[in-house]
Simulated assay, not measured.
Amino acid sequence: MKWVSCSCYVPCRWVGEEEGGSLSEVRARVGASHGITDLGHKLHFYDRWAPDYDQDVAALQYRAPRLAVDCLTQALPGPPHAALILDVACGTGLVAAELQARGFLQLHGVDGSPGMLERARARGLYQNLSLCVLGQEPLPSSEGTFDAVLMVGALSDGQVPCSAIPELLRVTKPGGLVCLTTRTNPSNLHYKEALEATLDRLEQAGAWERLVAWPVDQWELATSELEVVPRTSDSDGFISGIVYLYRKQEGAQVEGLRPSPQPPAGL
């Protein structure tokens, strides 16, 4: 499979029949995904990427799903099998695989890419999967449904906007947990600043309390030398990231947390 540039709406495309590719080709695909800032173009890109997504992120040693689930598992009270979990922007189901390995069985997922959902459905780990473009429509769930909500890898430009964060809180039970991740490499720092401003505003409003803000140096292999963690080289360098964990407060009432009048059917 070859990776080429083009002048169409999606900046790059796949050609050829071969599976996989070199690390440089994988880096090109992942780097291209980071560079698309239009949501519609991004979703189309993910539809095309879905068949190769798992092997590509494995080649880059992508650690966010495991790190996020490790963080959640340590804080969630009660037995894992009893917890109802929502995996937002679930992709192909990498987070669900980590959750199931730790005994979580009640897994629901949403994603904006039909191609990614098809791959997630094939894993057979979710009890329910729904198509939802968060930021443009509400989550298809009632207020206070889930014991924990995770969103791993989708908080960056062109993906889920910061304005959608209260929607995650809406569907979380009082006392439930919300686990989020984002990259902290140079090209994502502007988004990270906006994200943290949103997270802090919600905490100041009494909507939730921060339990963890865990910076991680070795998040995934860098896609370019400009993104490498300082004091490493591009050949073995990683970008950095961060895991956040919050607990929803009892009786949280802030702007943006009002339930949708009629949530779409699904979960």
Rank of each mutant, 00 (worst) to 15 (best):
E25I: 08
P51Q: 12
E225F: 02
V15I: 13
L86E: 01
A101N: 03
D234G: 00
G112R: 11
G78C: 04
V178Y: 07
L226C: 02
S235R: 05
S24N: 09
D234F: 08
I85D: 05
G40F: 09
D56T: 02
A222V: 03
E18D: 11
R102T: 06
G78D: 09
P166K: 06
S187Q: 08
Q249P: 00
A68I: 09
G124A: 03
P215H: 14
G115A: 10
V228D: 05
G251S: 15
F104A: 05
D70W: 07
A265W: 03
M1T: 08
Q253T: 10
L226E: 12
F104N: 01
V160M: 03
P79T: 08
F45G: 15
S141A: 15
G21Y: 08
L150K: 06
S235T: 10
P114C: 14
A59I: 03
A83I: 06
Q204V: 02
Y246E: 01
D47F: 13
Y46A: 15
A222G: 01
D217K: 14
R123T: 11
Y53G: 14
Y53R: 09
V160Y: 00
E227T: 00
S187R: 03
E196Y: 00
L168N: 05
P215Q: 15
E98D: 08
M116L: 14
D38Q: 13
